[in-house]
Design a protein around this nucleic acid. Structure first.
Lengths: 358, 358
DNA sequence: TTGAAAGCGCTAACAA
DNA sequence: TTGTTAGCGCTTTCAA
């Protein structure tokens, strides 16, 4: 074993990693030379592959550590055509919904070799195409992507990619491969039924204007469908653009109630604006849920602790993330020979304090 | 990157490309053979590099589109030793703080070739090391990482990486390279001064138990420092573990007020628990801010619309993200010959309705 | 304007 | 248990 004291990259003992003037990133060859072991054996040691004697292993590890070597996964991936990345593509990080999904995914992948890589589309199909294209060009081991609505191009890319694809959060549609989520139509129907059962009849809807939030759209569709079966029409609607928040919920609630004062229920497309509306109504001294019932969607935990508990429905975000990650992990591990898994979770209804005739 | 209809990357609708049995991903060679043009020229066309005749370009684009070719960035990156990825490493996605930062980063990087790749550490130094190692092994063009507190190993990796490193959200410490953020000590001092100026003297603190949330710790340090200069001690404290939320804020507030009923101010380490506390106090009929003042931190927009506006301080999240991304983009573009940029943002104090003697 | 050759840093497959 | 040889799919460089 050659000890090259003059090699500028090899720092003095103690500070294992400090090579301040380093220009060229270290390669396996550097570790090989520093340890007097072939590149191949160094590679084996660093990947814990094959049989390597303890003595050799120790020398290699010492050298790698001393040099501060970080392997080049680009070269490794090219050589092995294996990439331990899972592309995770979501529309937004700002609404308290997808962070939970992502945490579920990370949690499951932590027990595997796989690593999630995040892309955000801002609910724009063009952005989705672009992000997908970028991610696929890194040849990930799988894709987890929100929703079932795809441009033809995006769909083609995913189909041609030859890797596991899990579409999440929604099951109402035609999946490319696997799918994990809840039925938003069904969620809308369930909520409508609960509202009707409680005796409310003059129902208003408040939600996002965004035509590209397909899940919100489907909830509304299921909702109106069930109302109509009971001979009830939505009495008024209010739409908004931009981020959700309490203030938005207040404004919209005020607007709809001023326009249609005889409403006896407000159905919000998410808990955040619902909570804003609830705060507004409580302030106005409106009898909730006696005179006016209210409900949101998502079961955002953060909101536990409002003066009243808003009726809502669980979107199973963490479970969705976990199940999706598990599908990818199983496929990558080869433990699953099938494709097209379907995991349909059932949202639970929470009546809270805002959906029950007093 | 443009996304027009002639973009070779985007397969045409209509299924020209469904090659259902496709096993091997397409390569440049496939496009080369399909178009009768050398691989090299195909590569030039797809990267818009060098001079290529219009006729050749058209043939290549047609072939690429027809086949649904997606370039392999792994090979490209290895050959060119250029990777258009920026590693973004944050402690959490769940607290409404880092999504804003990430949006700022994405927004700036959208105008460049660079792409953010996200890693989450859950406030664990070991996780940070692991994530950093994984990301650096992909040889990104830059790193944006939250905080200034690093393990020796993490610090060494970053130093040795030879790429731009921007540490964000905090400026109180010893940066490895560039830094963008606010001074949390200063923020704590400012808030303490405002509270003292308003005449409050019996002050309680409520915050996370997490010893690894260094920014919260520094705010508290600055806070107590200013109080002490005025001869005021923190009268009581309450710490919590786990996620923030209104419910947590309520519980803690109840606990501290029952233990120390004569407190006249509550300083919360973030707006979410502060909002919970505020809701609790309003319900209890406590005179806010007359008998009891309250303040949080972060200026979370979502909360606009609470019955009272909580006093808070802006953590400049989006600006931090944007400035950090700009530093990376400039360095990558070669437009900046220097290193070690320091961007210190000044948080603004919002008194709201909870910090002013009536 | 186009093409041919030589790697990028690593790993699969095989040899010793 | 260790080493050698060929690539992985692309880009760089240089020649035509």
């Amino acid at each position: 074993m050659r000890m090259n004291k003059d090699d500028p990259r090899i720092p003095a003992a103690g500070g294992a990693f400090h090579s301040p003037d380093q220009r060229r990133p270290l390669t396996l060859r550097d570790v090989s030379e520093a340890s007097g072991v072939s590149e191949m054996t160094v590679s084996r040691v660093l990947r814990n592959r094959g049989d390597v004697s303890d003595a050799t292993r120790a020398r290699v590890l010492a050298a790698a550590k001393r040099l501060g070597y970080v392997p080049n996964k680009i070269a490794g991936a090219l050589a092995s055509s294996r990439v331990n990345l899972v592309a995770v593509i979501v529309p937004s990080l700002s609404n308290m919904v997808f962070p939970d999904v992502i945490n579920g995914i990370s949690h499951v992948l932590e027990d595997t070799e796989l690593q999630p890589v995040l892309g955000v589309t801002h609910y724009q199909p063009e952005q989705e195409e672009k992000v997908l294209y970028e991610m696929l060009s890194w040849r990930p081991s799988g894709v987890i992507i929100a929703g079932l609505e795809r441009s033809d191009a995006a769909r083609a890319m995913l189909q041609n990619s030859g890797i596991p694809v899990v579409e999440i959060m929604d099951v109402d549609g035609d999946p490319i491969d696997a799918v994990v989520g809840i039925s938003h139509r069904r969620a809308g129907r369930m909520m409508a039924q609960a509202i009707l059962d409680a005796g409310y009849r003059r129902i208003g809807f408040l939600g996002t204007k965004m035509p590209l939030d397909h899940r919100a759209r489907k909830r509304l569709e299921g909702f109106t469908e069930t109302l109509e079966k009971a001979g009830v029409q939505i009495a008024d609607q209010e739409f908004y653009e931009g981020g959700s928040g309490f203030a938005k919920g207040r404004e919209m609630t005020q607007a709809i109630l001023e326009r249609t004062p005889d409403l006896d229920f407000l159905y919000y497309s998410n808990d955040l604006i619902g909570a804003g509306g609830l705060l507004y109504c409580l302030e106005k001294g409106i009898d909730v849920p006696g005179k006016l019932g209210m409900a949101g969607f998502n079961k955002i935990e953060l909101l536990d602790g409002l003066p009243r508990k808003l009726a809502t429905m669980d979107s199973c975000r963490r479970e969705v993330g976990e199940a999706a990650a598990r599908i990818i992990a199983d496929r990558v591990a080869g433990g699953a020979r099938n494709r097209g898994e379907q995991v349909v979770l059932i949202p639970t209804l929470t009546l809270g304090d805002t959906l029950q005739r007093s």
